[in-house]
C-alpha cells in the first residue's frame, strides 16, 4: 500500500484504508475503487491524503525501497551507537518495508 497526496489520486485506484477527514470523519471505506466523482468529493471534504493498494504512484524525487533504506541507514551514521536512535531507525525501516509489501 502507499500513502499519496490527494492530488496524485487517479481513477481506478483502490483504497487500502478508509479515507478520513482532518476531524476524523470516515468518508469512504476500505476497498472503495476511486472514480472521478469520489476523488472530487474527497478533495472537497478536505481529505489531504489517502492510502491506496499497491504502489501505483512514483512521486517526484521518490526513490525505490532499497535505496530509501540505504539512505536512511546512512543518515544515522553519526548516531548509530545510540540504542534509541537505532530503534527509531528500525521503526521507520520496518514501516516502509511493510507498506511496500502490503
Amino acid at each position: 500500500m502507499q500513502v499519496i497526496p490527494i492530488r496524485a489520486a487517479k481513477e481506478g485506484m483502490e483504497l487500502a484504508k478508509g479515507a478520513v477527514t482532518e476531524d476524523g470523519k470516515v468518508l469512504c471505506g476500505e476497498g472503495t475503487t476511486l472514480t472521478m466523482a469520489v476523488i472530487s468529493r474527497l478533495e472537497k471534504s478536505g481529505v489531504g491524503a489517502i492510502t491506496v493498494k499497491g504502489h501505483p504512484v512514483r512521486l517526484p524525487g521518490e526513490k525505490g525501497l532499497k535505496e530509501r533504506i540505504k539512505d536512511l541507514e546512512e543518515r544515522f551514521l553519526k548516531v548509530k551507537d545510540d540504542p534509541v536512535e537505532r530503534a527509531l531507525m528500525r521503526l521507520i525501516a520496518e514501516y516502509w518495508v511493510e507498506s511496500y509489501s502490503a
Binding site: 500513502v3 499519496i4 497526496p5 490527494i6 492530488r7 496524485a8 489531504g48 491524503a49 492510502t51 512521486l59 521503526l91 521507520i92 514501516y95 507498506s99
Partner: peptide, 14 residues
Amino acid sequence: IMEELDLRLSELKN
C-alpha cells in the same frame, strides 16, 4: 505514529 505521519507528510505534498 508512523502511519499518521505518513498521512500528514503526504497531505503536505499537495
